[in-house]
Amino acid sequence: MDMIEAKHLSRAFGKAHRPWAKQSPDALRAVDDVSLRVAAGEIYGLVGPDGAGKTTFIRLLCNAIRADAGEATIAGYSAARQPELARAQIGYLSQRFSLYEELTVLENLRFFAEVRGLPAQEWKPRCHEILAFVGLDEFGSRRAKLLSGGMKQKLGLAAALVHRPRVLLLDEPTTGVDPLTRQDFWQLIIRLVSDAEHGVAVLVSTPYMDEASRCGRIGLLHHGHLLTEGTPTQLRATLQGRVLELAGTPLRALRRIAEQDVGVEDVQMFGDRLHLRVKPGAGDDVISRLRAPAAPLQVTRLRSVPPQLEDVFIALTAEVAAMPTTEGK
């Protein structure tokens, strides 16, 4: 069953037209006609740059702001017309979540449990259950301010889940968090949806492609539009055979040569190699042309590699930037 459903959701803000500013050229519409569904047991990644409309979209789902057009439903309840019922089904966590630093872990959770209306006899077993799930059951009496960053984040997740929501909304939950903590956090999120009994639907916004690749499905949000949607595998397949990896010396000179090749659409430089995006079907020709450059240039590796989500993102946003209808470009 679809736990999150957005139909033609739109929201505009009255800001001046400034192409270099946070708002995109058509930023008057922060979220523009976005439709998507997230089923129970699914993790949906809403991927996009700063200012793409990710946070606005999540706020529309919570009914924290009103939609100009379209409708959102949460576990079957209308976000706008049944806001209390809809919100009761939502757990929400952003990187800016706040805890009471002077309270203990358990006291913090009890607070969130009571705010969320858990009955008196139920909060304690539920708090212990959820603390065990996030791995903090031994720290119930520790004051929140004495927790490490990773533990605070787990407590934030426990607080978001304490009332057993069926929809979990995560707004850039791991921004600024170190990679070991992020790994732990994602293991918990995937466990949560993999447990058929609870059937939670998760929507997570992120600017990071490595995080997006852990989602079951991804929607690419750009200037308020949902550009494309699919599983990570499906999205990568759109560029199958079109990404080449080139290593050699000197890399910067090789880059200039690659940029001039007729079969190459785009060159991205990394620390020790280049990624070339080639025109459809041009891979072999490009390889034969670039394989043996004139001395002293040297190519040590040139081969087709599996496309990464980052390649897909750049290719798609470049297409949009090249579209004449995108004003101000």
Binding site: G48, P49, D50, A52, E172, T175, G176, P207, M209, R252, Q268, M269, E310, F313, I314, T317, A318
Partner: peptide, 20 residues
């Protein structure tokens, strides 16, 4: 951190120019 791949890539092109 926190910027999209396109903006990140533009930033790094500036860094590579400095390194060169």
């Amino acid at each position: 951190s926190g910027v999209d791949p396109t903006a990140r890539r533009m930033f790094w092109d500036l860094i590579y120019a400095l390194a060169e």
